[in-house]
Design a protein around this nucleic acid. Structure first.
Length: 152
DNA sequence: GCCAACGTTGGC
DNA sequence: GCCAACGTTGGC
């Protein structure tokens, strides 16, 4: 069992969007490290859903991995923003996973709040310049974030 | 909109 | 294989 933090810009795809459609293929990741994390994800792994590039960035709720890594079809779609001419169908470069809605936090756990919490000191998204859209989270970090998100 | 911190690209 | 130039991410 692993825990992952996945970023999404709410203008592109928000947690509310996931709540509405219940499940979504996590396509468009074009970074090798993030791709490798997705390939390591297992069925039932917990996903912390993070809103980036918005007024108050932070973790808004939980999802789970409902389908392990498979070929990201957008890399072969010429009309897609994520089209990759260098990726060959017989050796695809990019993978995606499917994530499913689990639960919405009663309150947002903001990035600022994570920074304040001693228990979250080592959280990868707090590292300067971290731009990975998929990062691993430890069980301890997960418990702390869940606690913060459940607090009234 | 600014800009720091990256990752990627491509010439050599 | 080095590294400068460039593009992107994402907080602020």
């Amino acid at each position: 069992m692993h825990y992952w933090l996945m970023k999404s810009e709410p203008d592109e795809f928000s947690f509310e969007d996931l709540q509405r459609c219940r499940r979504e293929p996590w396509t468009g990741v074009r970074n090798y490290q993030a791709r490798n994390f997705m390939r390591a994800a297992e069925l039932g792994d917990i996903v912390l859903f993070y809103h980036s590039n918005c007024a108050t960035p932070g973790i808004v709720g939980l999802a789970k991995i409902s389908k392990t890594a498979f070929t990201d079809p957008t890399q072969f779609d010429k009309k897609s923003d994520y089209f990759d001419a260098k990726s060959k169908p017989d050796n695809p470069r990019w993978s995606c996973v499917e994530v499913s809605f689990l639960e919405s936090f009663p309150r947002l756990v903001s990035l600022e709040e994570c920074r304040q919490s001693p228990a979250l000191k080592s959280l990868l998204i707090l590292r300067p310049g971290n731009r990975l859209s998929v990062t691993p989270v430890t069980a301890q970090e997960f418990r702390e974030i869940k606690k913060l998100g459940s607090r009234k």
